[in-house]
């Protein structure tokens, strides 16, 4: 007879769900077959969780706002201008920058598989990867913008850019007129991820936030 008919609940570890078990199985097999080294995976995860993100894109936008010659280069050859700031890598091989003006508003989507300019924006937000966004950004861009609280005048033309594995897009938002002459670091703080996807505009800064 056993002393403990009912094992204490801490005598085992609760297994994770089937999806996680499958991922662990795949990883173990790939490691055993010599195709993957766990440490390399950790470095990749660390990079994309903490180092690559929309702050990179904000630096690009701020520089374009502050330096007309950089802006000209950025619009002409986005890939090279962005690479000059050190933002290179996967899904950034070809980046086209599209400029918002009083007459034109740009919106970025990937209708097939959620391609996204990782080096400047990091990994895409949940809604960008959703079926409603994929379809409605094309069929009803004004309605999508409305849900993000972005109301455009009727005369503003909306251009929708469909990303591919070959070409990614970054929106250069309009600089709030009150911020002309501000230093780049301050300007970068105004730039949001959503504005660089094109679902939002950069609001004018609050008066007391001005330097």
């Amino acid at each position: 007879m056993k002393d403990q008919e009912h094992p204490h609940e801490h005598d085992h570890t609760e297994p994770p769900g089937d999806l996680e078990l499958k991922v662990k199985a795949l990883e173990s097999l790939l490691v055993e077959k010599g195709l993957v080294v766990p440490a390399a995976l950790d470095v990749l995860i660390e990079t994309y969780e903490h180092k690559v993100g929309p702050r990179n894109g904000a630096q690009v936008v701020a520089k374009a706002w502050a330096q007309p010659e950089f802006k000209e280069w950025l619009l002409e050859d986005g890939t090279a201008a962005i690479a000059s700031l050190g933002y290179t890598g996967r899904q950034g091989e070809h980046i086209q920058v599209v400029e918002n003006t009083p007459m034109v508003h740009n919106l970025v989507v990937c209708t097939l598989c959620s391609c996204y300019p990782w080096p400047v924006l990091g990994l895409p937000p949940v809604w960008y990867k959703s079926a409603p966004y994929r379809s409605r950004a094309v069929s009803d861009p004004r309605g999508v913008l409305d849900e993000f609280g972005t109301i455009l005048d009727d005369h503003v033309q909306i251009r929708v850019w469909d990303s591919t594995s070959e070409m990614r897009y970054l929106v250069l938002p309009q600089q709030p007129s009150e911020t002309q002459g501000w230093p780049e670091e301050t300007l970068a703080g105004l730039v949001t991820r959503n504005a660089m996807i094109g679902v939002e505009k950069i609001p004018p800064p609050k008066a007391q936030g001005a330097p």
Binding site: V23, K24, L26, E27, L30, L35, V36, V37, A40, L41, D42, L44, I45, Y48, E49, R90, L123
Partner: peptide
Amino acid sequence: AQVFAIVIEL
């Protein structure tokens, strides 16, 4: 994150 990293690494 694991799936993402495995795909990038392969």
